[in-house]
Amino acid sequence: MDTHKEFARQVRRDILRMVHAVQSGHPGGSLGCTEYFTALYRVVLKRNSTFTMDGKGEDLFFLSNGHISPVWYSVLARTGHFPVSELATFRKLNTRLQGHPTTHEGLPGVRVASGSLGQGLSVAIGAALAKKLNQDESLVYCLHGDGELQEGQIWEAAMYAAGNKVDNIIATVDVNGKQIDGSTDEVLPMGNLSEKFSAFGWDVLVLEQGNNLEEVVRSLELAKTRTGKGKPVVILMKTEMGAGVDFMMGTHKWHGVAPNDEQLANALAQLPETSFGDY
């Protein structure tokens, strides 16, 4: 677990350096979901050694809130999907690491484009249906922002999955309570998400400490035991936007803003270098 935590620290360094280098991108949600991605790719996902689009016989992951691409790119690179050095191309012309993830440039690890919000749950459910048709017992994971739940398509998909007993999917919602224009309660109060998903027929798990790596792993492992029981599973994962960098926490302002040189130095000082090494 210590190595995983060190890995997470390296991922945070990557996120900050990538976003700083191009003075654009979304550090807040990326930092908040670092433990989730670390747990998912280092512990939970059953993956084949080579990436294929069809992903037969392996667990699949879909990122629906595509703007937190920095954390995903860092973790994909550092789990062998493509060279770590490629992180330096993030958001630059001719890169495979587009601002929002895409299959268009053939980046290993990505199975659908995301960025326009609310679409990933439907795609993940479709992939879960294909797994059932293929008698493939591996699972489908997907991640969503809480602000993203304001999109109507999410609830079309939620209704479909429960109504059709799509029970080989584990959706996670990054509940950080923040979106671009402010807190989710200021922008559009969504009420009780746990009750909402329950009412839609989902098996709901609440993860109070989404920035505690052990807790994230435990929650994902628990969620796995709840699959195959006739209901889709959702984890409401409470995180801190900007987690790991003191001045980025407690505010929505770092949702999509890059640190300047001084802020980067300040942030990196809080996240000492690791044995994994910077890209």
């Binding site: 199975r111 439907s122 993940a124 479709g126 992939a127 249906l129 294909a130 293929n134 109507g152 059709n164």
Partner: peptide, 21 residues
């Protein structure tokens, strides 16, 4: 797959179903 009156979800499901052939 009868998806009900939910065309946006239908398009997403279709995209996902291609993954797996």
């Amino acid at each position: 797959f009868q998806v009900g009156i939910a065309e946006a979800n239908m398009m997403g499901l279709a995209a996902g179903l291609t993954i797996g052939g």
